[in-house]
Design a protein around this nucleic acid. Structure first.
Lengths: 298, 298
DNA sequence: ACCAATCAATACCTTTAAAGTATGAAAAAG
DNA sequence: CTTTTTCATACTTTAAAGGTATTGATTGGT
């Protein structure tokens, strides 16, 4: 049996006249007659009662008509859904995320993607950089977000934005009266840094920049994530350096200050994905990334 | 698109290897390759990723596989159901019934039919003889039950059984002491008969038999149905004549007596159906009728 | 580094089956 | 009683699915 048989039978059942159905199907009458006979023979069931004025359906015919319509609509739906999946409009996107990215940038970016692709289920997985790389290789995620990436042969790393850094101080701290600060201030106060976890990471980036300026800062604490770090600053454990994303998180007593002399003091946010991944959902996501960059290039 | 495409795609998706799938489908590899290409072209979607070790599914391919399996099982189910409908094993049977038939014979007969055809929905409609004929002509029912039928050109009438008649009397009545009675007794007591409604009917059958015996009975009441008639006998309104079916209905005080001299005093129960009806459900029902007659011919 | 093995893709031919044309048979309508 | 309508059959054409042989690409084992 063929989908053609179903189409033909539906036409005949709706017209109750083989000739008219043939007209509607843009074929001639004899092949239609034969296809229906074939169908009846294959099912070993009489579907039509031939009368001199046309045809009428048997009970089995009525039943088959109903089933045929079901099948037809399921087929149409299957085609539609598959096409949409092929355009990256339907399906699932697994994303690996990390600490500070989730505060500001990633939600904005995902919003942008979901506006265009409402039927793609986005599933977020919190994982470290190394876990992300492992998960990408096992195809457990399609995209990962990270800050500091060393190049890898099988993974593409694409810069999303370069964020300036800010100083986080408590408002009881003498620096909090300034509108901006110099990098050198970092050498004079104990620093709270983050995250823990595999190096190199944001801690190393900060140390690297301090090195460029010719000093090694005093590290008071290294904590798991930015939120904890800022909380410690609010508790008087020292000062901290954070990417711009974090300043939307502002607990009472915390002041964020830009650096005035630290023009190159920035940190990257990148997304990573398999070099060999050609899936339309990833393509669609990268289009959203580009759109995001356009909006934030100023 | 064709069901063949679905079958082929499922095979490929399950084997993840076009050559092996071709083997399983008992065709050679090149046509299978082409059919899959055709499918992808038609859907305008990449379903497979070709690797040197076989193929793997894209997300769209996964989606299409799921849909294809759904369609396949729906098709199988459609074929199955249609075949069963064609054998009269599935569908709906509308039956017209009348008063006394429902007390005994019809339930037994329907039981027999439903044992063999559990998935046929039997719908009963209480209607008079003329309503049954009208309903048959309009195909609102497939079978009717009746007692007295005049022959009709478009309707077949098939005898199911010939029931003996019984006398219904109250146990305070002098006749109730007998083990059997003579027909002539009917001339000596007021008769409760039934049903009302279009003639000729059971009333006329009783009068006809009395006529053969040379008398016209005194009719006390004609009531709508046998149950009412027997209830009136229980209330002392006279005696009544009922088909054997009715004697299963035995309210307190009622005694049923056979007639000893009335060997030909019987009444028919027949089923009627369209002469031009060739539906398998009717065929199946008539087989059940035959089985019933076999069981009750003694 | 090369050779054999594996697998999908392509080219070309054969076979199957669906569509078209012409016509027939049966029954209803005028 | 003829004309029309409608489905069925016989025969031909055409389209498409299947088969055979071969190529190209990649991997894995000497």
């Amino acid at each position: 049996m063929d989908l053609r048989h179903l189409k033909y039978f539906i036409a005949v059942a709706e017209e109750l006249n083989i000739g008219r159905a043939a007209l509607r199907l843009h074929i001639s009458q004899p092949p239609l007659t034969r296809q229906i006979q074939q169908l009846e023979e294959e099912l070993d069931v009489q579907l039509l009662i031939r009368t001199p004025r046309g045809v009428e359906l048997t009970q089995a015919g009525e039943m088959f008509l109903e089933e045929a319509r079901n099948i037809r609509s399921l087929v149409e739906q299957a085609i539609e859904r598959t096409k949409r999946a092929g355009q990256g409009k339907l399906g699932r996107l697994d994303i690996g995320i990390f600490g500070t990215g989730i505060l500001n940038t990633i939600p904005k970016l995902l919003q942008l993607f979901r506006d265009d692709h409402p039927d793609v289920r986005v599933v977020l997985h919190t994982m470290t950089k190394n876990e992300q790389i492992e998960a990408l290789r096992q195809k457990r995620i399609t995209v990962g977000f990270n800050r500091i990436m060393s190049p890898l042969p099988d993974i593409t790393c694409e810069l999303i934005m370069r964020e300036p850094l800010f100083l986080a101080v408590h408002n009881s701290h003498p620096l909090s009266k300034n509108v901006s600060v110099s990098v050198k201030e970092l050498s004079k106060h104990p620093l709270v840094l983050f995250p823990t976890g595999p190096r190199p990471n944001f801690v190393d980036r900060v140390l690297e920049i301090c090195g460029h300026m010719g000093f090694i800062p005093e590290i008071s604490q290294i904590v798991g994530d930015a939120v904890t770090g800022v909380a410690l600053v609010a508790g008087g454990f020292g000062i901290s350096v954070v990417p711009e994303s974090v300043i939307t998180f502002k607990p009472p007593g915390i002041v964020y200050l830009p650096f005035d002399d630290w023009l190159t003091g920035k940190v990257d946010l990148s997304c990573i994905y398999r070099k060999d991944d050609e899936s339309p959902i990833l393509k669609a996501f990268l289009i959203a990334v580009n759109k995001f960059r356009e909006q934030h290039k100023g």
